[in-house]
Amino acid sequence: MFIALAVLPLLLGLGYAMAYSLGLVGLLSEGFTLAHWEEVLGSAFFWRTMAFSAWVSVVTTVLAVGVALGFVAAWPRVFLRGSLSLFIYFPLAIPAIVMAFIVFQMLSAGGLVSRLAYQLGLISGLEQFPGLVNDYWGIGIIAAHFLMAAPFFIIFFANLYENEQVEEFVQLARTLGAGARQAALRVAAPLLLRRAFPTIVLYGLFVMGAYEAPLLLGRQSNQMVSVLAIQKLQRFNLGDIPQAYVACIAYSAIVLSLAVWLLGRNGEERLKYQGSGGRGKKV
């Protein structure tokens, strides 16, 4: 049933995309050819797009994980009980496109932050405000994804902290002579990161393939891979469609390779944790 509902449609979609990219199907199909693959994989623009997507993904994930780890190590219980535990879920309910609009309203040259800076006398004109959206480094895209990722990781780490006996490990470290900061850095952070590693990487892959925020907050020269693929699919030139499929398949190949590697690693990590004498052995 799982194969029929989840794996089969994926394989059929990938098969169709592969056939299209090889010129076997499609309106302008002229039979088998590797020309589309050669064109895409030989293009510097495509690799710049992949590199830019990876940059946005890595920076977003590292920032969000770092901030979330800091919050949870400092206040592990606050996010599981009380009013803040409800408030922290709100950002997760906001759709990505709405979050992108919020960031645009905040960080664009005519946005709230720019106007505030002007009122405070930090800039003498709106044109002096640095380009934080539709910018070269993808700061706007990173900001939008960070605002969604940080609450997710805070909730995730707070639950791990409680369920994986991290509190006990930290308390033990404290009696062995670790100050609160040392216990957080030497014990809580490594434990949480090891348990959360597959999720962190999967979230990074999700950000790498995200579409809405890059569409609104990105630009033409440094595109993310999803925007590149959609633009090629929807262009008037039907000859670009196979290239869109090449981009999608190349991206999927990277994601699938990472997912397979992660599944193996996750199994090993679970085994290692079970052997540490923690409650995890009952999992």
């Binding site: 006990e168 490990f169 062995l176 090891r194 944790y273 540490s276 004498g277």
Partner: peptide, 17 residues
């Protein structure tokens, strides 16, 4: 706790994995 030099051992060994 880190200034007391009193070590607390749990029921489980809790070796850092």
């Amino acid at each position: 706790p880190h200034r007391r030099n009193i070590v607390y051992l749990y029921q489980e060994p809790l070796l850092f994995p």
